[in-house]
Amino acid sequence: MNALDFLKDHETIRTDPVPEAEALVDVRHLNLWYGKAQALFGISVRFPRNQVTAIIGPSGCGKSTLLRSLNRMNDLIPGVRVEGEVLYEGINIYDPQVDPVAVRRHIGMVFQKPNPFPKTIFENVAFGLRLMGVKGSELEDRVVEALKRAALWNEVKDRFKKESGLRLSGGQQQRLCIARAIAVEPPLLLMDEPTSALDPIATQAIEDLILELKEHYTVVIVTHNMQQASRISDRTLFMHLGVLVEEGPTELMFTKPKHPYTEAYITGRFG
């Protein structure tokens, strides 16, 4: 198959599509350009509530771009243009009347490299809460709660008010970033390759954490690691060259991929 034909005409192959009622986020015909270069081509997909959806694909396929367009982080890059709709709880977040800052307060994000602020552990987690005007004992309770949920509390409980977040190990820093993101109770949590900078043990801790977070949050995770996708995700999206090639339940995607590209990628023949 020729790559250009593929870009123009591809219809996403959907296995067990998510019904509209179960979707927290509904992306409709999303096109995105960086300047003149188009990065996303007519993406339509639904992300179901309280499930983990993994986005996989080779480097440069637009998985991070798709993830960042879910909380309008792409707006910060000069020259980005977006067409199409992203419905969050039925509201199009690209509507001109929607404030991107408010969108980001509702949707948490965890980045590839742990990026704690050079402040104490407490202040790191409290940052988002302070922006929302939470104060006093409620602030403290919610910080502790977030640290507990991020499985960091036992390691830092006797020093979290004094010690800088930068003094933690890489895996702890990433869990701190997760705590910081979930402290404001965002219904949707976006994760951009959260374990790619971590060792296997720290990765294990984060993966366990993601499975627990599923109880309360909807998680969308970009990953390079297919074992990780198969271990933690309920649904998987496979992207290639800015196109959503195939999506479906993780088990089926990994055992019976339908598109030849998907099969080739999953079996390790390219990517």
Binding site: R104, G108, F111, K113, N115, P116, F117, G128, L131, R180
Partner: peptide, 27 residues
């Protein structure tokens, strides 16, 4: 000040002013 700190603050729903004065300035 690394760009990742600004992104982290933006992702938490900080306005440009809050990013500049609460994160970047102290750092």
């Amino acid at each position: 000040v690394p760009e990742s700190l600004r992104l982290a603050a933006f992702a938490l729903g900080a306005t440009r002013r809050q990013v500049a004065f609460r994160v970047v300035f102290p750092a």
